[in-house]
């Protein structure tokens, strides 16, 4: 495992998209330290900002320190593990294709944006646009799993195409906006305009039925069998959902009828 310890930093955002197992693999410590980052608009070597130790052969990276101003950690990674012992900055795990990114603090906006595979697990909160599409993009995350133990901001899973996002806490406004497919599970409260313009996909709210847009309609009370597959998957990833047994009856609302109307919002019948 290679260890990066953040030195004192000016606070200017550091763009460190080189911090991935893919780019560290096969490199010596000095070569890792020479990888290029952007300190504001200035190109600089990674070693200027991090003390680097260990060795990179096992595909594991541990990052120590408050990296809330360090962007793009694990972006585009395809394998291995990145552990951040603290906060992580914007775009962490974006366009990720495989491996695991674990953040033991909070993460900022665009976490896992347009990711295609792998697992991101954040022990704290995350910012806006988690798993979403970048502005101008047509699809958000297209695969993989994002797990947030705390809260998430606005436009969570916006334009999501495939994959699974689990939020233990609350989410902000426009959750699942423009969703194409995929599944978002939320344990806490949900903001306004949920699922606006979603075509397909599933929004699962475990404890709270938000005020729905008028373009969503009640379908039925039933027991959707596929939910148990997701709950089993979440449990296997260390993200168990309390009280998620197969006997729970769920209310199903379909929408957004402004678009295809094949999306759905599922809420336990007892949560109303």
């Amino acid at each position: 495992m290679i260890v990066l310890r953040l030195k004192n930093h000016s606070g200017i955002p550091l763009e460190a998209d080189c911090v991935t197992p893919d780019l560290f693999q096969g490199k010596s410590l000095s070569e890792v330290g020479a990888l290029e980052v952007l300190d504001g608009n200035r190109k600089a070597p990674l070693g200027e900002f991090f003390e680097i130790s260990g060795e990179a052969s096992d595909g594991r990276i541990q990052i120590q320190g408050d990296c809330s101003r360090v962007k793009w950690i694990g972006s585009g990674m395809t394998f291995g593990e990145v552990h951040v012992d603290g906060n992580a900055g914007m775009h962490s795990g974006s366009a990720m294709k495989g491996g695991k990114l674990e953040i033991h603090g909070n993460s900022s906006d665009w976490l896992g944006a347009e990711m295609r595979g792998g697992v991101i697990h954040v022990r704290g909160n995350t910012g806006h646009l988690c798993g979403a599409a970048y502005r101008g993009g047509s699809k958000g995350m297209r695969g993989g799993t994002i797990l947030i133990e705390g809260n998430a901001g606005n436009e969570t899973a916006a334009m999501m195409r495939r994959g699974l996002v689990g939020i233990r806490g609350n989410v902000g406004d426009f959750a699942g906006m423009g969703m194409i497919a995929g599944t978002l599970v939320v344990g806490g409260e949900v903001g306004i305009r949920t699922g606006a313009e979603m075509k397909r996909g599933t929004l699962v709210f475990l404890n709270h039925l938000p005020k729905l847009l008028p373009t969503f309609r009640y379908s039925c009370d039933y027991r959707p069998g596929f939910l148990q597959l997701y709950f089993s998957r979440l449990k296997s990833l260390g993200f168990p959902i309390p009280g998620s047994d197969s006997q729970i009856v769920w209310k199903r609302y379909c929408g957004d009828l402004l678009t295809l109307g094949l999306g759905e919002i599922l809420v336990p019948a007892k949560a109303n």
Partner: peptide, 22 residues
Amino acid sequence: QTSKVVDKTRYWRIPVMDGEFL
């Protein structure tokens, strides 16, 4: 019909009169 992909496995959900056939 809609599908769900869970951990790389695809499942089909087909609407039927008592809910869904998975």
